[in-house]
Design a protein around this nucleic acid. Structure first.
Lengths: 164, 164
DNA sequence: CATATATGTCAACATTGCTGACGTAGTTTA
DNA sequence: TAAACTACGTCAGCAATGTTGACATATATG
């Protein structure tokens, strides 16, 4: 593949640029989750368990319904992993005060420990990438990823705060 | 969650910054693959088929071994989807010339059409995000994603070319 | 009281990973 | 040339995680 072809054909360059982006997303996401997957294995958990632990850790006391909405999976799918996490003492369910139909979700201290262990492995990777890339790059990273995401509102507020 | 807490505690801000990155990766990746998943469904294919079609389209004539290495899956896992793609006429296998043990992989014209249809849906999303974010942001996006990836060499050359 | 909502459960199925075992054709090497 | 290695394929079974559809229970709400 010659330089001539690249320089002569701007459309080729553009296609390659988009291919690079797609591959970066694929490989980066795979490596990003890879380390945590290893930790989870030792607990006989999978990535689905991780997501539940992550989001409950981020917003303790959230309802099952809210969690379903964030994860965009069916209650039957969630039920399988959630029951395991509750049975094995990583997550605690408390009946809602306002609405007693709700089973609000909290991490137990055991759950918190696992959450931190998992987050640490991923945070380290992100932090290192951020450090190497520099502040401007971090800003661009966020801008582009937000552009790729459907529900951008989800991040708008926090992103604005971080811009300061 | 008050501004006071944020301003008073830089560690809190940092944690939130890393959380934002993790969630952006999660949601962006999901939405990035979502559209293509829909198209694949109409062919009774899954994301694994997409990956095969994508990488064979990018490097026609690659060997099964090379593909296995890129995908990091077992030959048994690949076999399932690859056989389907060959049986249904999306991919063609030709015996290698130098090494007749190899079954080199090519997209048929049917396969190319599907590849383009799938890529188009994802390219459009990336291109739009790039356009909104601007050139500097794109550069930062690539820098950070490369930092997150393990085998950075994979992208080094192309990335350098695009920097010009 | 009737209806809607939040949650849970049972059953069946699809996709896509994995391991282990075995086979065949073709290449390399001692 | 015979032995060993390599590329590829296949069969069988298992696990994780997503799906649909049906049904049940407790609670809220108009």
């Amino acid at each position: 593949m010659s330089d001539i072809k690249r320089r002569a054909n701007p459309l080729f360059l553009r296609e390659e640029e988009l291919r690079l982006a797609m591959e970066l997303l694929f490989f980066a996401y795979r490596d990003f989750t890879g380390e945590a997957d290893g930790i989870l294995e030792s607990y006989n958990f999978g990535r689905a368990h991780h997501r539940v632990i992550y989001f409950v850790g981020r917003e303790p006391g959230m309802s099952v319904k809210d969690l379903l909405h964030i994860l965009s999976i069916t209650k039957q799918s969630l039920s399988r992993v959630l029951s395991q996490l509750v049975d094995e003492g990583f997550i605690e369910q408390r009946t809602g005060v306002n609405d007693r139909r709700q089973r609000l979700l909290y991490l137990t201290s055991k759950g918190q420990k696992l959450e931190q262990q998992l987050s640490k492995s991923q945070s380290r990777r992100i932090a290192e990438a951020y450090r190497l890339a520099g502040a401007d790059a971090v800003d661009g990273f966020r801008k582009v990823l937000m552009g790729i995401t459907d529900e951008k509102e989800r991040f708008a507020q926090l992103n604005d705060d971080l811009q300061d």
